[in-house]
Design a protein around this nucleic acid. Structure first.
Length: 616
DNA sequence: AGCACGCCGACT
DNA sequence: GTCGGCGTGCTC
């Protein structure tokens, strides 16, 4: 009798392996890789849903085997590359394959499936591949698209669609992973315009279960498709995958916030290796990871020679200097749109010393200070209060960047006739009329305008760079570059408050050099992305200390890093020892978890994040 | 996740 | 003397 190996979609480590079942004769012909089945499991009364990952003649299991009870749907719902990707990511992130299967396979919709099977000729399903073979050495490129969105030929959507059209014509598939719903809409409308929408399949967590399942099984069973979506789509099925496009990998939405904390970029890099296919990362400003991959020659950087707006950089500590005020006023009089990007909402967001003009910083963690409601100087990062003055001796401070509410008041006074609108993460505008509107927006929430903005003021560069986080500069550059892309061809960009080398580099909009320098500096300090940093968090310090001892004894690849975060231990490790670390750690973590005094049913004792960039 | 097995406190 | 508390451990 044949044996079916079945895996379950479960985050439990004990269940994270294949379980073997006998295949009854009646089901023999319908079972193959990726088919969903119901099987008896343990003493539970109801049958458990699993996915067949192998049909074998023998089982390695000593005990007696149960039989597969039922087949859920006749068609496969998981592809072999998808499963291999889940395994690779689980190993890299020290997670369970089972918890990733849930992202690779959406929840089944029986109605949607029945409809799909009725509308599709059965020959389409599992048809053998007759496509020409793919290129032997697929390219890995980082592409900077046209600086301006108005540049249609070099717009990121055009770059992807032009390349994708060639790929799907040859019967292969394309995967496009976008940061946000907004980019998804932009890309989708470009697909409509190009006529390729009929060859496309969308994977978005915002879609209904029914749509998601229809699109999922379509992608499993057909080739020559453009599969596109937000970060979950990194795991989507793609038959004969030949090209991967990742858009704006520095955007935070590419980071999965729950265990095992994967990132679209890491998943897709692994996918391109496993499936031996081309990968192209497209962004106006590179992430430090991509900068590193370019530096070591793993990626090739293509810069498109495109139209750029004029850039003016002021080094004043004022938020908006007199000259910029005059520019805003002039542009509004011409009835042209103006964008002011500010770091945050609310009122005062940072403090400068009144005498030496330096930004006041926390003596412990170097975070920026602000005036809390009781008018005390307080660190934004570690929340400590300060009464001692500046190192120059001065004690007086003044606010250097006001939030949008305060700035709006100020601008209302200065431009009483102007139409001032706000856009932020909470109340986000997507589009404004091209007439003389003054937009105040927080990073990432800038509305688009037909023809682009005549004037863009990046008002809070000091505050944005003052964030004492690893990715402060990288994220500021990403937000600035994306705001700049909304400029008109004859637009002017004013970056307020920058000086030195970065100012010189940004005058030419050379974000790649800024990030490269930052990345090399971090490498010298042993910080990511040249090394990886992991964290383990626990509610119980006793469990954490036990793990700490075991790590010191057994995992010499891990280098302890001090951290201010409570109930957390942090380690650095070389990229090359990642799998060794994950393998060893998995054993230790389960050992500690098993004997923990402080565990709740179904809940983790230790939370491991193999790439935690928040803790440092 | 379920569900049973297993070893200590209050009941007829 | 038992009934049942839920800690612990297994499920092909």
């Amino acid at each position: 009798m044949q044996i079916a190996s079945v895996v379950f979609s479960s985050p439990l480590p004990q269940l994270d392996k294949p379980f073997d079942y006998l295949v009854p004769d009646g089901l023999k012909d319908s079972l193959s890789f990726g088919v969903q089945v119901l099987v008896p499991f343990g003493t539970a009364k109801k049958l458990k849903t699993g996915i067949v990952i192998a049909i074998q003649e023998h089982s390695g299991h000593e005990g007696k085997l149960s039989e597969v009870a039922e087949i859920l749907s006749g068609i496969p719902i998981l592809t072999i590359p998808q499963f291999e990707l889940c395994q690779a990511v689980a190993l890299r992130q020290m997670g369970q394959v089972g918890e990733l299967l849930g992202t690779a396979v959406p929840k089944r919709s029986v109605r949607a499936e029945a409809l799909y099977l009725k509308s599709i000729p059965t020959t389409w399903i599992n048809s053998p591949s007759t496509k020409p073979s793919r290129v032997q050495n697929p390219k890995r490129t980082f592409v900077t698209p046209g600086v301006l969105d108005t540049d249609e030929q070099m717009h990121w959507t055009s770059l992807i669609i032009n390349a994708a059209e060639i790929v799907i014509r040859s019967g292969h598939s394309v995967l496009v992973v976008l940061p946000d719903f907004r980019e998804l809409i932009v890309f989708e409308s470009a697909l409509y315009d190009s006529g390729l929408i009929k060859n496309s399949v969308r994977q978005s967590s915002e879609d209904s279960l029914k749509d998601r399942w229809t699109n999922h099984i379509k992608a499993v069973n057909q080739s020559g498709l453009i599969v596109y979506g937000t970060r979950l789509a990194s795991f989507a099925p793609c038959n004969d995958l030949s090209a991967i496009f990742l858009v704006d990998d520095g955007d935070e939405s590419h980071q999965e916030q729950s265990s095992p904390y994967w990132h679209s970029r890491d998943v897709l890099l692994q996918r391109s290796q496993l499936e031996n296919c081309q990968i192209e990362v497209i962004a106006h400003s590179p992430s430090s990871e991509i900068a590193r991959l370019c530096e070591i020659g793993y990626f090739e950087h293509h810069v498109l020679d495109s139209a750029k707006p004029l850039v003016r950089i002021t080094s004043t500590s004022e938020r908006i200097d007199q000259e910029t005020y005059a520019l805003i006023s002039k542009t509004l009089r011409e009835n042209k749109p103006v964008l002011i990007q500010i770091a945050n909402l609310g009122f005062a967001s940072a403090l400068a010393c009144a005498s030496c003009k330096e930004i006041r910083r926390c003596g412990t963690c170097n975070g920026t200070l602000w005036l809390d409601p009781s008018k005390t100087e307080r660190c934004r990062n570690c929340k400590r209060t300060f009464t001692d003055g500046c190192s120059c001796g001065g004690t007086a401070v003044r606010p250097i960047s006001l939030g949008s509410s305060a700035l709006a008041e100020q601008l209302n006074k200065s431009f009483p006739k102007a139409n001032i609108v706000h856009s932020s993460g909470v109340e986000r505008l997507t589009m404004i009329e091209p007439a003389g509107t003054l937009v105040i927006a927080t990073p990432g929430a800038e509305p688009s305008v037909a023809g682009g903005y005549k004037l863009i003021v990046l008002a809070d560069s000091l505050t944005m760079l003052g964030v004492p986080r690893l990715r402060g500069l990288e994220q500021a550059c990403q937000k600035w570059a994306n705001a700049i892309s909304k400029s008109a061809t004859d637009g002017l960009v004013v970056i307020v408050g920058l000086s030195g080398k970065i100012a010189d580099q940004l005058r030419d909009l050379d974000f790649a050099s800024v990030i490269r320098d930052d990345m090399l500096e971090r490498a010298e300090l042993g910080l990511p992305p040249a090394t990886r940093v992991m964290s383990v968090h626990a509610k119980n310090m006793k469990d954490l200390n036990r793990l700490k001892v075991l790590i010191a004894e057994q995992v010499d690849e891990l280098e302890p890093i001090p951290t201010a975060v409570a109930n957390t231990i942090v380690y650095g490790y070389a990229i090359a020892s990642g799998s060794a670390v994950a393998t060893k750690l998995k054993v230790l973590v389960s050992e500690v978890s098993k004997s923990s005094k402080d565990k709740l049913p179904g809940q983790r004792v230790l939370f491991v994040n193999m790439d935690d960039h928040q803790v440092i």
